[in-house]
Design a protein around this nucleic acid. Structure first.
Lengths: 263, 263
DNA sequence: GCCTGGATATCGTGC
DNA sequence: GCACGATGTCCAGGC
């Protein structure tokens, strides 16, 4: 690990180059101007910023506030450094789409370079996918007797989240949203309906599954005879956990207390 | 500015507390586990990460790769720190929506705290707004004789980007996209058409303005008799620049070479 | 490579 | 506070 406080620009450039060569992560606190050119363009005048360069070729430039970086470059950039007119110039070029980030530094308060040992797996309990899995695992979450026929079913304009048959033989079309369902979600579901037909003498039942309905859409939902079934991420997660437990139990019974049991 | 290399957890906590109190920015390289709970939840086991805490109450946790932080918290969080079971625990709580980020640190390689002096204004040359401004300033970009009547015009499901009358008295409805226009953009425009009518005996002319059309939408566009007019951000920007120059010239003529002229 | 849809999206704006 | 749209969105997954 390298830590330099108020390094000269030449010294900083040397360490920067060595670190990038070695695919290390670099952080700098520096006074700089930045220009970006590519899909569009941006400029920002002189100021002190936190600059992060990662080994995979991405860049983040952060100001004193805000979650978002003021300038950045996604992974896959090629870095160049040079000294020009007494300033350290760091350029990050992304090949496709062609984009260039240019950082011109006239003073560095601080530079560090290091390698992060991090093999851990990131687990996100979330998302529509979780809700979908829960419904597939336990269709009763929507209603008793529902049988799932398909999911991510292709229809003309996109994909139906879940597609099934209810206990009366009606066709059920489910659109899942993890956030309160707004007008866009309803429109999407309505769109799909045009391309789907129920069995002979049966109905087509469009259902929105979401934690709640956004305010303005209730009239539309009623008008279009769309059903709403509340389901939260929390509930989906619990369902899957329970299901996993019972699966494990079944497995254990199946294997008859196998010797590899660890917990 | 504070820079600590391999500080003890107690020492680190003190500096961290002082820095956060003073609304400074803090960066740490630390071995930690992280859990998040809120709109959804996440967990990640032990590993070394770059942690950034800003004075406005936002948090970023970065791994060795990727533009995106693995965990984060937007602005407006309240920070807590404590030592527990020989670990430094940093908690960032966002009041609304209620979300909690929990970082448990067992070793710190490096901690810095600093204040960034940065008054510069960020200038972005971009966005649909730029294209819209260009069209408003010079409707001929779309076609000769177009007169703009309104923009951001409210219709039932949203807002029409630009609304005008062509040289034949037909109603023109423009949807602007800065990226290649895909199915969603076309759908949006079609939706608006339902709520608009042309003058007696005139036509309704829906026009997509974008740098290009996405591949799959050409059939839809032709079927719906939507026109496509190519316009890039680049061209919009040039138009506005030119317009600005001629405005300045006109202003100069108007003022009769005013004494405040500087450039 | 293009295109589609999700995201702990974030962020601004208008109501 | 809620809803809606833009973002240099980024990113994974299909084709």
């Amino acid at each position: 690990m390298v830590v330099l406080v108020s390094p000269g620009l030449d010294e900083a450039r040397l360490e920067l180059w060595k670190a990038l060569e070695a695919r290390m992560m670099v952080t700098m606190v520096a006074n700089c101007t930045i220009s970006y050119s590519g899909r569009t363009g941006s400029d920002i005048g002189e100021g002190e910023r936190l600059i992060v360069l990662k080994g995979d070729g991405c860049v983040l430039v952060h100001r004193s506030r805000d979650y978002q970086p003021v300038n950045w470059q996604p992974s896959g950039c090629v870095f160049q450094t040079r000294i020009e007119d007494g300033r350290l110039i760091v350029k990050a070029v992304r090949p496709s789409p062609l984009e260039t980030l240019n950082i011109e530094i006239d003073r560095i308060d601080f530079l560090s370079a290091f390698r992060l040992k991090d093999e851990a797996e990131f687990i996100l309990h979330s998302s529509e996918e979780e809700m979908q899995k829960a419904i597939l695992a336990e269709p009763d979450l929507i209603e008793q007797g529902l049988r799932v026929i398909d999911f991510e079913k292709k229809v003309a304009p996109g994909f139906v989240d879940v597609y099934g048959i209810d206990s009366q033989g009606n066709t059920v079309v489910i659109e899942i949203k993890k956030d309160p369902a707004g007008a866009a979600a309803v429109k999407q579901l309505v769109e799909y309906l045009k391309y789907l037909s129920p069995a002979e003498g049966k109905k087509l039942r469009p259902i929105i599954v979401a934690p709640s309905l956004a305010k303005g859409v209730l009239p539309t939902v009623e008008k279009m005879k769309i059903e709403f079934k509340p389901l939260t991420l929390q509930k989906s997660f619990e369902t899957l956990q329970k299901r996993m437990k019972s699966d494990q139990k079944a497995l254990k019974g199946w294997l008859g207390d196998a010797p590899s049991e660890k917990s």
